[in-house]
């Protein structure tokens, strides 16, 4: 027996599904089939294979991999540094987006281009640049090689554009009169930020943060040269996976990979939920 609340919650879903079915013609059916096939070959099947490989060692095998101090240290370091970098990006990225949208100055276009460099640059090149500038032979006297700061730096470099590019278009849509309205209603600068601007920008900031976090967790090229990959200290998860593979421990590698996959999924689902909220707001 279904309760009233139950059926009320289910109705829109059913409606949506029915609408989706009714729009399928023969042409779109073929397109949908191809899309699903392509997605499967590229994404679903390999991911399934990784999860299957991880499961091949059984729960006990997986547990022993995850409780291995070196693996645990790598996961903790990766997630921890990625979270720290994401916090930094939220603050700095929002500030950069603000400056780019609201201020006019000489060199603005140059900055617009430079922001995207980490997107375009092969990450190993980024690693080389960082090693050259902040490595043992640093021309500016800053040597972070083989430290956790190097991991942080590499993450920060590759994730810089995400929050900026997510916040910028939303900020451009935001009418400056909204701030003026808040001020004229008696809000101070801080109150205007906290009550009007941040809530309006929050979904965009969160989206940028999620992408920035996911990207940092998966980074390899930018940090492999400068971090030194020291076990228990500066070794990140992606490097750990490679080490397992090099040692022929494929199922162990798959277990760690599955953990990364799970983290990515959680972040992406959170992102999707946020975007639905934004879409509803219109």
């Amino acid at each position: 027996m279904t309760t009233l609340a139950d059926s009320a919650a289910r109705t829109p879903l059913r409606g949506r599904r029915a609408a989706a079915r009714s729009t399928l013609t023969r042409g779109t059916g073929v397109t949908l089939g191809l899309s699903v096939l392509w997605l499967s070959v590229l994404v679903l099947v390999p991911l399934g294979a990784v999860v299957a490989a991880a499961a091949s060692g059984g729960v006990a095998g997986a547990w022993s991999v995850l409780t291995n101090p070196q693996t645990l240290a790598a996961i903790t370091l990766t997630v921890g540094q990625a979270a720290l970098v994401t916090v930094l990006n939220v603050v700095v990225g929002t500030a950069i987006a603000w400056v780019l949208v609201r201020d006019r100055f000489v060199g603005k276009r140059a900055i617009e281009v430079i922001i995207d460099v980490p997107f375009a640059l092969p990450t190993i090149v980024a690693g080389l640049v960082l090693l050259g500038l902040y490595g043992p032979r640093s021309p500016v006297g800053v040597d972070v090689a083989n430290t956790r700061a190097a991991v942080f730096l590499a993450f920060a470099f590759v994730t810089l554009p995400f929050v900026v590019r997510a916040v910028q278009p939303v900020l451009e849509q935001l009418d400056p009169d909204v701030e003026r309205a808040a001020r004229s209603l008696g809000a101070s600068g801080v109150q205007t930020w906290a009550r009007v601007l941040l809530p309006a920008l929050a979904p965009a900031i969160a989206a940028g943060a999620a992408m920035s976090f996911a990207r940092a967790v998966s980074e390899y090229g930018a940090l492999v040269l400068i971090s030194g990959n020291l076990a228990l200290r500066t070794e990140v998860t992606s490097v750990r996976i490679l080490t397992y593979i090099e040692n022929g421990q494929l199922s162990e590698a798959a277990v760690v990979a599955t953990v990364l996959l799970a983290i990515a999924l959680v972040v992406l689902v959170a992102l999707d939920l946020l975007q639905r909220r934004v879409a509803r707001r219109g």
Binding site: D177, V178, S188, P199
Partner: peptide, 21 residues
């Protein structure tokens, strides 16, 4: 005096609504 201390109500051409509220 800054805007927030003037006790003035202001209505803008494009509404300036707080869209998340």
């Amino acid at each position: 005096l800054p805007a927030q201390k003037r006790g003035v109500g202001f209505v803008f051409q494009h509404y300036a609504a707080f869209t998340h509220m």
